[in-house]
Write a protein that binds this DNA or RNA. Structure first.
Length: 274
DNA sequence: AGTTCCACCTCAAAGC
DNA sequence: TGCTTTGA
DNA sequence: GTGGAAC
């Protein structure tokens, strides 16, 4: 489940193959991947022959700024990956889109679950189609501004962290990680966080995203604690601290609880995480 | 408007 | 082993 | 991970 760190890692991986290159051939292989367009064929027409000036990221979106002023948008959804390949490399399953550059290499979009998409939008379409808040890494609001955005909200803080219109980039895993780091219960009404908690929360967002990127992103599931320790990746503090539902917390012994917010489940220690 | 719930897909691991 | 269920 | 329906 790619979140901001995975998306940023993917963007950096793509840069040398994309920035300053001209797109010489494009193919959309799966109509669902182009579903954000009324006419998915527009993607091919609008990308063909264009130069990609810069490859940027906003939240979980990868944005290729084109010479024409349009923007080539990639969203990885739940299972999207980007592969760089030669035209004669065998195609792996679920390759739903590719673009070849003047370097002769192909940028291939693989997405088994098809929750991701590719688009090429005008500035107007971009504004209308992508509901985006401030980027959680590059443009994270100071805690007073966060307080203002959260004030009066009764929804659990975790839901609000997942709302890309408030701050964009966090998903289920990183939201849990951030709340653990800040020692804030996921279920707390967003508007009731204290000034101190808000500060800790903000600091935790900065720290956890940095560490995630440093680790090269991670595709671990929220159930990674079920794996042998070595496989889970060091920066994910929470997964080592806690355990499975009903089992004693590894650090304090309190039975672990399972909570479901917005259809996403997670496990936490009601004692360690106030 | 804010909040909650569910559909959208395919695959792999776990359960029986 | 193979089918069903669960969760990402 | 997201968008839309329903309350």
């Amino acid at each position: 489940m790619p979140e901001l760190p995975e998306v940023e890692t993917t963007r950096r991986f793509m840069v040398p193959h994309v920035e300053g290159r001209r797109i010489v051939a494009v193919e959309l292989r799966h109509p669902r991947t182009g579903r954000r367009h009324e006419n998915p064929a527009d993607i091919v027409d609008r990308l063909q022959g264009q130069r990609v000036d810069r490859l940027e990221r906003h939240g979980k979106f990868i944005l290729g700024r084109l010479g024409s002023g349009l923007t080539w948008v990639t969203h990885l959804g739940m299972s999207g990956r980007v592969l760089i390949a030669s035209p004669d490399d065998p195609e792996i399953a679920h390759t739903h889109f590719w673009a070849r550059t003047d370097l002769g290499t192909e940028i291939r979009f693989i997405d088994p679950r098809t929750f991701g998409f590719v688009a090429v939008f005008t500035p107007e379409e971009l504004k209308k189609e992508l509901k985006l808040g401030r980027d959680a890494l590059a443009d994270l609001p100071r805690s007073p501004q966060l307080a203002a955005r959260l004030s009066g909200r009764r929804a659990p803080i975790k839901s609000l962290l997942l709302d890309q219109r408030i701050v964009s980039g966090l998903g289920n895993i990183y939201a849990d990680e951030v709340l653990f780091r800040a020692r804030v219960r996921p279920t707390r009404p967003g508007g009731e966080l204290t000034t101190d908690e808000l500060k800790k929360l903000r600091a935790a967002i900065v720290a956890v995203l940095r560490e995630g990127i440093e680790a090269g992103g991670t595709s671990l599931s929220d159930l990674a604690y079920l794996l042998p320790d070595g496989q889970a990746g060091g920066f994910r503090e929470r997964l080592f601290a806690y355990g499975r539902e009903h089992e004693p917390c590894r650090r304090c012994g309190t039975p672990i609880e399972r909570i479901v917010i917005g259809g996403r489940s997670s496990y936490y220690c009601p004692n360690c995480q106030k």
